[in-house]
């Protein structure tokens, strides 16, 4: 294969990474933007989504696509419920104190990981893709499912964007984000908004996981990498800025994918983590954020 098609293949593979990364990172960013909570357990919500997808697809019979659709609906719901519960039981009692919530979500990370290990086991298990359709390019065949992942992620992101800017719930959320005390004075139930946002953020990670699991396999330790990448994306894109997050996801997904494809995945991650540390030190508002 000559260089051109090879590059095309690399770009397409990276776009799949970027698409799921955007979903995961937007979830993290929503939670940080609205609640000022750095959710270290976000990657475990991702993992939980993948594991639940495996449980749903194996227990639902019939053709593959039925199980997949069921997983796409049920897994995010389940994860959202866990997140809302964690918010009520732990985060709310800490008054959303930033440093305390980080410690608490680290605790949550271990609890979820152990739960997955105990109930699901240490094996990596595959989930069947809902359809097997290959698109034949002149140089190589490409899985149609991967293209579906990209489009599905775009659709979900558009829905989130629409919900935030055009619906009443989105308005309430943004009001809470800007000033929670005034929002409370206007009769908004801030506790419920926070629980909802935390659940929504977790559900987005879970959707990303359900989409990726036919390509990647579900494993109880799979949450570490998406967490790291999502962190990097959110910080580079500017904490709490959704547009910045999506752009950053695209940039980081592509560059991570391309460096990993041509050099080494480890080198790509080293560069990305150093980049994010330096961004935080020298440009805390993010590369795309406005000057504070």
């Amino acid at each position: 294969m000559s260089f051109g098609p090879f590059l095309l293949l690399a770009v397409m593979e990276s776009l799949v990474t970027a698409a799921t990364l955007a979903l995961t990172a937007v979830g993290l960013s929503l939670v940080f933007g609205t609640m000022r909570v750095v959710n270290v357990a976000h990657g475990e919500f991702f993992m939980l989504g993948a594991v639940l997808a495996w449980f749903v697809t194996t227990s639902v019979g019939g053709p593959e696509w039925i199980g997949f659709v069921a997983a796409l609906a049920l897994a995010p719901l389940g994860v959202a419920a866990v997140a809302a519960l964690a918010d009520r039981l732990v985060l709310k009692r800490l008054n959303y104190e930033p440093e305390a919530t980080i410690v608490a979500t680290i605790g949550l990370l271990y609890i979820l990981q152990q739960a997955a290990l105990t109930f699901y086991g240490p094996e990596a298990r595959p989930v069947e893709p809902p359809f097997n359709f290959r698109i034949q390019f002149p140089w190589f065949g490409y899985s149609g499912y991967k293209l579906f992942v990209i489009f599905a992620a775009i659709a979900v992101l558009l829905a989130v964007w629409w919900g935030l800017t055009r619906s009443k719930a989105g308005l309430i959320m943004r009001a809470t984000q800007v000033d929670r005390d005034t929002a409370r004075a206007f009769g908004i139930n801030v506790d419920r908004v926070y629980a909802g946002v935390f659940a929504l953020g977790a559900a987005l990670a879970a959707i990303a996981a359900v989409l990726i699991v036919p390509i990647q396999q579900a494993h109880y330790l799979m949450g570490g990498e998406p967490l790291l990448l999502a962190f990097i994306t959110v910080i580079v894109g500017g904490l709490g800025s959704l547009r910045g997050t999506v752009i950053a996801a695209l940039v980081i997904g592509l560059s991570d994918g391309l460096i990993a494809f041509f050099y080494s995945p480890t080198l790509a991650k080293i560069l990305a983590t150093l980049l994010v540390a330096l961004v935080l030190v020298f440009r805390p508002q993010g590369l795309f954020g406005a000057k504070a």
Binding site: V90, G107, L109, Y110, I111, L112, Q113, T118
Partner: peptide, 20 residues
């Protein structure tokens, strides 16, 4: 039990909640 991670996680959450 083999669930040692659980102990670490629960200890962290309980400490930060009740005995910071």
């Amino acid at each position: 039990t083999t669930a040692t991670l659980l102990v670490v996680g629960v200890a962290l959450v309980l400490l930060i909640l009740f005995a910071p």
